[in-house]
Design a protein around this nucleic acid. Structure first.
Lengths: 135, 135
DNA sequence: CATACTGTAACATTTATTATTACAGTACAA
DNA sequence: TTGTACTGTAATAATAAATGTTACAGTATG
């Protein structure tokens, strides 16, 4: 799991909010994040599927937010980028052992509740809130 | 980050608690988790450094808990296995851009608070609590 | 001194992530 | 109607991270 996708996604959304009067190109965005433009387009492809971003093709095209930044919670961004709970990976333990047989059920329970606490905290901030930090 | 180490570590600690009257060997533990014994020894090497486990070398040796299971919180186990905050990975953005220059500071702040919420939730359970689920 | 363990280094393998190239499709504007 | 500047996406390559494996030195026990 721990990839840079959340950081990338939030960077994109922040740029779009701070320059909300213009369409930004993948190349411009990629220049700010310092990654390949295709990474940006792929990430946006996902964010668009979640309604956070709109795009315009063709010359003079580019990207803009798909809804008000105040309506995009960082927990939603996180979930859009990573759909399994943190800690999600378990082993494939021995079913002949009492512990091995049951542990994954108990782990999952644990993972889900910890994940909820994590998302709840992230959800206290919106893209609008986050963007205000850059003034 | 998201590796199976937490699951492995907790599995080990649970076994030690449930069989606290005996020393368990890395081979036995590995058999329950269904991983290579060396993985178990390595993980235990770390858990021991944190005081959660004691080991005895030589013939008839093996592992046991290093402190009462009721004093080992799962947040401590998590931290011992993974010392950077969840979400920890950022990009290496362009310092010539207003957003690129500042974002990592703001991301870190976000990561730390979300991480705290996550750990706080995990910390509500101890190895003793967790082990009771297997009765 | 044979046996059954732990401890750890070195290396191999597998899987996940990120980067790159390539090119089709679309909109604009001269 | 054609050149230009974009997006969209597939395919592939490169890199990095995680896991597994082998090997063997060290240690306690009987």
């Amino acid at each position: 799991m721990n990839n840079g996708r959340f950081a990338t996604a939030l960077h994109i959304l922040t740029l779009l909010q701070l320059k909300k009067d213009e369409l930004l190109s993948s190349e411009y965005i990629a220049g700010s994040i310092n990654v390949n433009p295709v990474i940006v387009r792929k990430e946006i492809s996902n964010l668009r599927a979640h309604g956070f971003i709109e795009s315009k093709e063709g010359k003079g095209g580019g990207y803009s937010l798909g809804k008000p930044a105040s309506q995009i919670r960082l927990s939603d961004v996180y979930r859009s980028v990573n759909d399994s709970p943190i800690l999600g990976r378990s082993n494939d333990p021995n079913p002949d052992c009492m512990v091995g047989r049951q542990i994954n059920v108990h782990l999952k329970e644990l993972f889900v509740t910890a994940d909820e606490a994590f998302l709840k905290q992230l959800g206290k901030t919106t893209v609008a809130d986050f963007s205000k930090k850059f003034f």
